[in-house]
């Protein structure tokens, strides 16, 4: 069995707001193994970014985090202090954000920041740190790496900045990388390059990767396992093959039905759609969160919490009252399986 890097059990994030308590993340469990890519996919406001921030202990101050278990490489980080967490962040756990400009300091050169990233956590000489920076910049496909070290972030294009960001994250050789929408701000051609790079590096260094995105195309191409989130809950979890080829939860099916796929969706035919909008998560909510927008919903859907249940295959779970066979039939009817 592969080495477990991250184990999260029943993670919750609550944020007090004007009208009550916003239950932004409601009991999420997942794990990441060595060399594995987990994609958390969902639409805006589903809690996917808060989930990643909660794992890194970088939530906004007023947010309240709770969990049964939060372990990084066997170490309990749920009750770790801020000192310990800042040792872990950037060291064994790397982060890549959507806009690299916000995580790179505009006042320092690339070289300075990369060396600092290593020297903060390891006892190394500037010489060694510099060599590693050059090695990693070359690794992420940056030509003339040595001369780039003396450049400032604003002198680089968006794609190059994201490459630098990735190289910087790798400085300490982390076991786990959390990437929150790393390619959303980039052009499609650059997006493909960055994803390719991430996938290659992850394979080479055998890291765990959590990729958070709303783009199903990205997920399908890069994920080993997928967690689909809706309104603060994971509604379906499984391997990429299971989730994309045998989508079980009506929401997953709806999402796949929504996106135009060249060569597959018929032109000039309307796309599938999910009517309605995401429900507010303020206050207690004991019902299927998707019921209001679900075409298969029935009375029992709103009579209490819905639990995750296993689908036909191993490791494939979903949160719905309909049995797997019915879901399967629905998916086939909608043409998404």
């Amino acid at each position: 069995m592969a080495e477990r890097i991250l184990e999260v059990e029943n993670l919750t994030v609550d944020i007090p707001v004007g009208g009550g308590m916003l239950h932004a993340v409601q009991g999420i469990s997942f794990h990441v193994d060595k060399g594995e890519t987990l994609c958390i996919v969902g639409e805006s406001g589903c809690g996917k970014s808060l989930t990643s921030l909660a794992v890194m202990d970088l939530l906004p101050k007023k947010a309240i985090r709770g969990a049964n278990k939060l372990e990084l490489g066997g170490e309990d980080i749920l009750n770790a202090g801020e000192r310990r967490m800042s040792d872990i962040r950037g060291n064994t756990m790397g982060m890549i954000f959507q806009e690299p400009m916000t995580s790179l300091n505009p006042a320092y050169t690339i070289g300075n920041q990369m060396e600092e990233a290593l020297k903060r956590h390891r006892k190394v000489s500037t010489r060694e740190a510099r060599d590693r920076a050059i090695y990693l910049l070359e690794k992420v496909g940056i030509t003339a790496a040595e001369s780039r070290l003396s450049q400032y972030p604003h002198q680089l294009s968006g794609g190059l900045r994201q490459r630098v960001m990735i190289a910087m994250t790798l400085m300490c050789g982390p076991n786990l990388i959390i990437a929150d929408e790393p390619t959303t701000a980039l052009d499609v051609t650059i997006q493909a390059q960055i994803l390719l790079l991430l996938a290659e590096l992850q394979r080479e260094f055998e890291m765990g990767l959590i990729l958070i995105t709303h783009d199903l195309g990205v997920v399908a191409r890069i994920a080993d396992r997928v967690a689909v989130m809706y309104a603060g809950q994971v509604v379906e979890q499984g391997t990429a093959d299971q989730v994309f080829n045998r989508p079980t939860h009506p929401y997953t099916q709806g999402l796949l039905d929504c996106i135009p796929i060249p060569g597959k969706t018929e032109r000039n035919k309307p796309l599938g759609s999910i009517p309605g909008i995401v429900p507010s998560l303020v206050g207690p909510f004991h019902a299927c969160h998707f019921a209001e927008r679900c075409q298969y919903a029935f009375d029992d859907c709103v009579k209490g919490d819905i639990d995750m249940r296993p689908a036909v295959e191993d490791g494939h779970e979903y949160r719905c009252l309909l049995d797997p066979e019915t879901c399967r039939a629905n998916a086939q009817k909608r043409g998404v399986a």
């Binding site: 019921a291 029935f298 709103v302």
Partner: peptide, 16 residues
Amino acid sequence: AVQDTNAQKPVIADRT
């Protein structure tokens, strides 16, 4: 929920 048939969607409290 609405007491009607399954064809009618169940109504949950307006959460908007």
